[in-house]
């Protein structure tokens, strides 16, 4: 089973459950409160996902770091490459 199928299966199960509660297809006689909570669920989940994404972006902005070790390593490698190319007769 591919990931796509797994996701589609999960989403369709949730969607069917949502539809059953919201439109009362099976005539379950659920309390009215359930319906009240259920009908904005898709929008609610979307808003929650948006909040999570915004918080993740904000957190990463606040804790953004320099990579000084990596910068030194990269510069050393550039220097090495330049020396090597010069030895092979390339004019820089």
């Amino acid at each position: 089973m591919t990931k796509l199928l797994q996701w589609l299966l999960g989403v369709s199960i949730l969607g069917v459950a949502w539809g059953i509660v919201t439109f009362d297809i099976l005539d379950l006689r659920l309390p009215h409160v359930y319906k009240e909570v259920a009908w904005p669920m898709p929008v609610y989940l979307l808003v929650v996902f948006g909040c999570y994404s915004l918080a993740t972006v904000g957190y990463r902005v606040a804790t953004f770091n320099d990579c000084e070790e990596a910068a030194k390593e990269l510069q050393a490698q550039i220097q090495e490459a330049k020396d090597d190319l010069k030895r092979k007769g390339l004019k820089m």
Partner: peptide, 12 residues
């Protein structure tokens, strides 16, 4: 940066 980032986190 930290102010903006924490502001975003707090807002969300």
């Amino acid at each position: 940066d930290q102010a903006v980032g924490m502001g975003l986190v707090g807002f969300s």
